[in-house]
Design a protein around this nucleic acid. Structure first.
Lengths: 219, 219
DNA sequence: CGAGATAGATACGCTGACGTATCTAATAAG
DNA sequence: CTTATTAGATACGTCAGCGTATCTATCTCG
């Protein structure tokens, strides 16, 4: 066979196939997130992303002007849009479902590492911060127990006066702290404990003082 | 006067004073933390730290072998060792005091940025993680509401069965989440809200179901 | 099939950090 | 004052990423 390679015959067969458009972009997004997860936002670069994506720097600069742009774009396209939705008449079950969704969709090791890296950067970079919350988190939801709590409040199952900013954050706050401290994901039992020991008591639904059927506005 | 500068006469007067030992080390620590706060752990380097500390790279390599070493060392020496101690017979007041201490000593913009940067790095670097928790956080305390809660549990003012890992983390978790989300420090009112709306209810001391003088094991 | 668009390979000069070596100058200890 | 330490300045050679330019190969669309 004739040697059609410009470099060396001993490399990979070089399928000579050429990705473009969405396919190429998706590969670049993926590469950018992987690099960020492995190295942190501070250490990534165009060169590294291009290498990992198996493309040329030229192709990156054609669309983005910095690694951060790529990562932000990637995160937006890759983050799931799900919200807790089922909502039977089961507050506890739905709270657990919401936090489980958070864990399984937003805290998997891969996203987790990326999000942590970006949040750290955003802490020092107000512009990145704006874009992160404005362009990525807000449109992508990221409201878990909140959605559930408002739902039950509307139906009179939860006292709306209890739904302060603090209370709305309890579940997510504990999930995040666990992830940071333990460097692993909370298991089902821990999630249940968050709901039973922190969220429900804060709503006044405390097993210990039993507000089982009174003290709430009529539905 | 005679020109005794080796470089240029237009530089700073060059006091020709030379720091050594602790004084020098402290300056380097400070510089390392500042660099980290500004650039993030991923972007700091020996060169930058030396420049900011106004010393020579040589002096850094004499004691440390990487920027990370310096930062970890710096954090250890710089983090305050305080613990919430006063402890009147005022659970609510002491919880508030503990979280206020956390805010004022550990979350000031400067430390906050450094700690966030390092935590992000530790998320991907198990070895750094070990050292961070083992060499810095543990020996430096970092237990705020925990100390208070155990204290009151020992005196029978709080049901020990309530002091689960989840409950012990509520206050700190909410403080952290606030800091990350808002990029600013919680004010006194927010801290009070954390205590009143999240921690006390989780202890069974809920204003809403009023355990004011009963339901606790006798002291 | 042919034209226009888009990817890919490569080379370039530039800059900045790396880690080391070397030498001089300030300081502390005796 | 003398001597042993320890800082500071500087100069390497090396390496890797930067952002751009150029040219070719592949793909899409009409």
């Amino acid at each position: 066979m004739s040697d059609r390679n410009r470099t060396q015959a001993t490399e990979r067969p070089e399928p000579a196939r050429r990705r473009r458009g969405k396919e190429l972009i998706a590969a670049i997004h993926q590469a950018a997130l992987e690099e960020t997860a492995e190295q942190g936002l501070g250490r990534i670069g165009m060169e590294g992303i291009a290498r990992r994506a198996g493309t040329a720097k030229t192709s990156l600069y054609r669309r983005w002007s910095s690694p951060e742009e790529i990562v932000l774009d990637a995160l937006y396209h890759v983050l799931p849009v799900e919200e807790p939705s089922p909502m039977a008449d089961d507050l506890r079950g739905d709270l657990i479902a919401a936090l489980t969704l958070m864990r399984d969709k937003f805290m998997q090791p891969f996203y987790g590492a990326v999000v942590t890296a970006i949040l750290a950067e955003a802490q020092r970079n107000p512009e990145l911060r704006e874009r992160l919350y404005g362009e990525v988190f807000e449109p992508r939801g990221g409201r878990f127990t909140r959605t559930v709590l408002y739902h039950y409040a509307e139906r009179g199952k939860v006292d709306p006066a209890r739904l302060t900013p603090v209370v709305l954050d309890i579940g997510e706050a504990l999930m995040i702290k666990y992830g940071v401290d333990e460097a692993k994901l909370p298991d089902d039992a821990y999630i249940a404990a968050i709901v039973d020991q922190a969220i429900l008591p804060a709503l006044g639904h405390d097993a210990g003082c039993d507000t089982g059927g009174r003290g709430r506005p009529a539905g």
